[in-house]
Design a protein around this nucleic acid. Structure first.
Length: 292
DNA sequence: CACTTGACCTGTCCGC
DNA sequence: TGCGGACAGGTCAAGT
């Protein structure tokens, strides 16, 4: 579901669509999806224009001219879908959007801009949220104080990845990769894909992983994340871009959601197990169950 | 402190 | 067909 590549794809789309638009109104009917008080909404959201759309880890940051920021976490089933005035009312089909008429029954928050365009926050399972914070306070959120480095940043290298993973030396490598305080943005899909690529079994204890394997894992992780962004992310069930389009990475995935199919490297049947409480996909031959 | 499990939610699918 | 339960999996809180 939305991991770094999906959130980055949404960010790229919103950055093309939103800057300069002025907020006219906001609608929301589920308090946990948008917890801000009405007074703050009136003072710092209504009338403000969008300046820039950023991302940190799996979180979207929509900076406003009011020096406030809309902080958005999509969690499992969140979507941020933009519709122009023309797309909402014009004749014919808006685009090849995967989602239909909006709002729909999973719409939790709707931002309406003065030009008649709208931004919909849809979230079937209600785990995600949108909240308005002063821009200077965003990085003081507990999550941001603890979250690890961006894996695609220029100064992140395999030594750093190894050292940070080794802070969790008694747990398995998959749990460590999923730990957002170790490295930011990795979720279930890209953990499985990068571990397969590096030929590391997900239950391998971190203390048993050798330096050369950490190096391979770093290369695999960066390659997988870059390709996933290029493909517009992975659409398993819910995920869509800001334009409402699917991502195509799963077409290229090696193991994720491919149980029963042949490993692209050796032809062995891919199996699905449970590791770190998550569905986990491995090749039982390429990824040896035990490291020594 | 290190680590694991359950809760938060809804929709879908599977077996009886 | 209907119904209970498992499952999907990001993050935080609570448990061991």
């Amino acid at each position: 579901m939305p991991e770094l590549p999906e959130v980055e794809t949404v960010r790229i789309g919103l950055q093309q669509l939103l800057p300069g638009r002025v907020v006219a109104s906001v609608d929301h009917d589920w308090p946990k999806s948008f917890p801000n008080a009405e007074a703050d909404v009136q003072q710092f959201l209504i009338g403000a224009s969008v300046v820039e759309v950023r991302r940190r880890a799996k979180v979207l940051l929509i900076d406003l001219s009011s020096q406030y920021t809309l902080v958005v976490h999509l969690k499992m089933t969140g979507q941020m879908v933009f519709r122009s005035q023309a797309e909402r009312f014009g004749a014919g089909h808006p685009n090849e959007s995967l989602v239909g008429e909006l709002p729909d029954r999973s719409t939790r928050v709707t931002l309406t801009f003065v030009d008649g365009s709208k931004l919909f926050f849809n979230d079937q399972r209600k785990f995600g949220w949108v909240r308005l914070l002063p821009t200077t306070e965003v990085m003081n959120l507990d999550f941001f104080k603890k979250v690890g480095p961006e894996p695609l940043s220029a100064d992140f290298d395999w030594h750093q990845l190894m050292e940070r993973l080794q802070r969790r030396k008694n747990t398995n490598i998959k749990a460590a990769l999923l730990d957002q305080t170790v490295v930011a943005g990795i979720g279930n899909i890209y953990a499985d894909e990068s571990l397969w690529s590096a030929k590391i079994h997900p239950t391998t204890l971190v203390r048993g992983v050798k330096p050369a394997q950490f190096h391979k894992l770093y290369d695999a992780l960066v390659a997988v994340l870059r390709m996933a962004i290029e493909k517009g992310g992975s659409t398993d069930r819910n995920y869509v871009s800001a334009e409402g389009k699917r991502g195509s990475y799963l077409t290229f995935a090696s193991v994720f959601r491919r149980e029963g199919q042949a490993c692209p490297r050796c032809g062995t049947t891919i199996i699905k197990t449970r590791v770190a409480g998550r569905g986990t996909h491995t090749c039982p031959v390429c990824q040896k169950p035990l490291s020594e």
